[in-house]
Amino acid sequence: MNIYLAALLKVVGVLAFVLGNAFILIWAERKISGYMQRRYGPLRVGGPAGLLQSAADILKLMAKEDFVPGGADLWLWWLAPAVALVPAVLVYLVLPIGRSFVLQNLSIGLVFFASVTSFTLIGIFMAGWGSNNKYSLLGAMRAGAQLFSYEIPLILSTIGVVMLTGSLTLQRIVAAQANVWFVVPQIVGFLVFYVASLAELNRTPFDLAEAESELIAGYFTEYSGIRWAMFAVAEYSNLFTTSALAVTLFLGGWRPLPLLAFIPGWVWFVLKTYVLVFVGIWIRWTLPRVRIDQLMDLGWKFLFPVSVANVLVTALVLAVR
């Protein structure tokens, strides 16, 4: 097949998935938070269990007036949603969805993922600075502080997996988990990775960048309607892809549970990922938001030494084995 056509098909598929994922997660987040607070969540809009709520939301967002804040830096303000969405789409390239189903099996998959996701901050910062709004600026600054503090534990917690596998290719990392999922030997790495990834995603309890009770909406205070929707789509997509990376590195990727191998691998992959997404939503309605100094302390004074110790202990165990 023509390589241009193949690439185009891939990108259309990924964009369709990104939108479908946002459609499901808008509804799921509301429904789950509803049930966790002993409410019903969306119910009246139509569809099974109010599933059409997402459709109504999307229509509303498209039809909302698109106004530009007067003092905004127009270039930055216009381009920020695009910059935020690019890394969200790019990371799908390296995710190993099934046994032989990966869009592009890059040999540096893990480093590619880590480096591309940190570009999200540039979009956030463009939005925060370009809006010329004090809340936005503070939100963007906090997002920066958060990324600085949690990027290092995030990277260090994956080193143990790389040591056990001897490869940065995500497909090989899944292949190496044939006997035991890496969550067993790397439980510390998994916990550090999960906490750090919640912080990278700006999700509660680390959602200081958009803390609604202090900063209105943080860096996208001045965005409304369809432009805001683009940020939301990117965020839900990042929630999925980061959970998918956790599944790939620690929870066996597309590998089935014993006795259930007749279910195809990609189903397992998506299923495990959505279980982790559910845990993320669960945490959101369980824990209160941390303070900014607690956030920095947790990153620098706890997760960093723990992840370094995890690397050393893994190395020692592999050396004496």
């Binding site: 241009y4 690439a7 949603p81 695009a82 969200a88 390239l93 869009l103 592009q104």
Partner: peptide, 20 residues
């Protein structure tokens, strides 16, 4: 491999702008 990355970047940037 790199063609894919380029096309994904361009599409990811164009999609929000075209939607708006």
């Amino acid at each position: 491999k790199y063609l894919d990355i380029v096309i994904f970047t361009v599409a990811g940037a164009l999609f929000p702008l075209l939607t708006v």
